[in-house]
Design a protein around this nucleic acid. Structure first.
Lengths: 156, 156
DNA sequence: TCAAGAGACGCTATACTATAGCATGAGCGT
DNA sequence: ACGCTCATGCTATAGTATAGCGTCTCTTGA
């Protein structure tokens, strides 16, 4: 990782620590390592992919190790789980309402974009209300082709 | 199952067979059995729950047996998979566009309601378009409390 | 000073979800 | 008869996630 990215990473880890503090929780060394791994990744990584990487730095890591870390980070809005992929990505903005974002999953390049669309949010709230349903959180994941892949189709 | 439900089941199986025919596919005996199990269920059932029930009628059933059946039924729009639950429910209307429905999952009673909301559909299409994203299908699952459970909270 | 409780982590085992891969047999068209 | 496609049987294995219990550390209050 180059210096600029390294500084960006440090900034994000620092911000994450502050978010945790505000929640009365702590970003321990282990959790910080897990968060780093998610932040460093090019794209969504599964729990076991992250575990493999974590093991390089912490030999004692086993499945519960990574799942506890991931659960903590999800709970505090620092990362997202993409249900469709069983994989994790950083949260684009830890301060927004992380229970109400949407994901665009590109089936061609594998990238996942996080968006926060007011119209979608409103439409979902309206649809729920019409059924008398009280939503607590939403999973909204669109599968398809991202703008880049649509413009420059990968060699087929 | 009482007679009325039995007749309803037969009607739905018949309709499913016709849907398959229109798709140039066949609702074989095995697939019909799997669909029956999903239709009979009170709520969402996982693949292995369905497998256990299938085994009562078909001793040779193993995981691939049930997954093949389920994959076929999902593909032809006869059932839905709820990603959040890794579970399956019947499709409320095999003729609608089964790639664009929404689910309301009650965390209290476990029921899953299927809705097809025009506003949600439009909002998602708009959000995708603004990103230049070409959606192929969507997973939209709201977790929360259904109207009945909100009105008559289960004994806590 | 030292119990008692809470939180984080180590570690073993196990549960749960899903697919790869290859064999067999039925039906169909030529 | 032959080759083809599709459905199923079956073994094995891959992949995802959690239960449960022990230990250590820190805090807090008697």
């Amino acid at each position: 990782m180059n210096t600029a990215n390294h500084r960006s990473m440090e900034r994000r880890l620092q911000a994450a620590a502050e978010t945790c503090e505000r929640h009365g929780a702590q970003l321990t060394e282990l959790r910080r390592m897990v968060l780093s791994l998610v932040l460093e990744a090019d794209g969504p990584l599964t729990a076991y992919q992250l575990l493999d990487r974590l093991k390089e730095r912490r030999k004692s890591a086993v499945p519960p190790t990574i799942y506890r870390g991931l659960d903590f980070l999800v709970k505090h809005g620092l990362i997202h789980k993409i249900e469709r992929l069983n994989a994790f990505i950083p949260c684009a903005d830890a301060e927004h309402d992380h229970h109400d974002v949407q994901f665009l999953i590109c089936q061609s390049c594998g990238t996942v974009a996080e968006i926060e669309d007011r119209m979608v949010r409103r439409a979902l709230a309206g649809a729920a209300a019409r059924q008398g349903f009280q939503p607590q959180n939403a999973v909204v994941e669109l599968n398809g082709t991202c703008a880049l892949c649509a413009a420059h189709p990968p060699v087929a």
